[in-house]
Design a protein around this nucleic acid. Structure first.
Lengths: 67, 67
DNA sequence: CCTCAACGTCAAGGTTGCTTTACATCACAA
DNA sequence: TTGTGATGTAAAGCAACCTTGACGTTGAGG
């Protein structure tokens, strides 16, 4: 799974820490997601989508194979 | 998180077991999702969406509060 | 140079998603 | 009744997600 988190966040001039606070997760979680260390839970994916005003599919890209 | 899994699956005349096999998960996982025992991983949510030809948002409903 | 903000990352621990195995229920057909 | 297909559910174990706490790196400004 790829995602456009860093791209979208930076385009809006938001810091990881602000975003983390708004989503009620730790800054490390945002960093981990941006750097592909793991995938978000579906709950967090929904929160992120809502936060950016986008759909999950616009942010997270599932290619089919792999993780 | 609520979902329309059972509704959609039954509307298409599919068995839990067929669906599980197609998605490469266990039958218990499908049952657990339908009965709200836990939420799917985002990977599984994508697989389900693709399987039904729907978006994640059309299948899984995130109300905001709760789990 | 020094410092501070922003970010990367590691370790240890708790919770959740998913597995296998097993058993129970319920409706329907023979 | 007997049995079989479809489903619910429980326990135990492993992997993934997320936390707190800590420390390292990098770049911009003074």
């Amino acid at each position: 799974m790829k995602n456009r988190l860093e791209e979208i966040r930076k385009a809006r001039g938001i810091k990881q820490e602000e975003m983390a606070e708004a989503l009620q997760v730790s800054r490390q979680t945002i960093s981990s997601l941006e750097n592909g260390r793991y995938n978000p839970s579906i709950i967090l994916a929904f929160k992120i989508a809502r936060y950016f005003g986008l759909s999950i599919e616009e942010i997270f890209i599932y290619e089919g194979e792999g993780k």
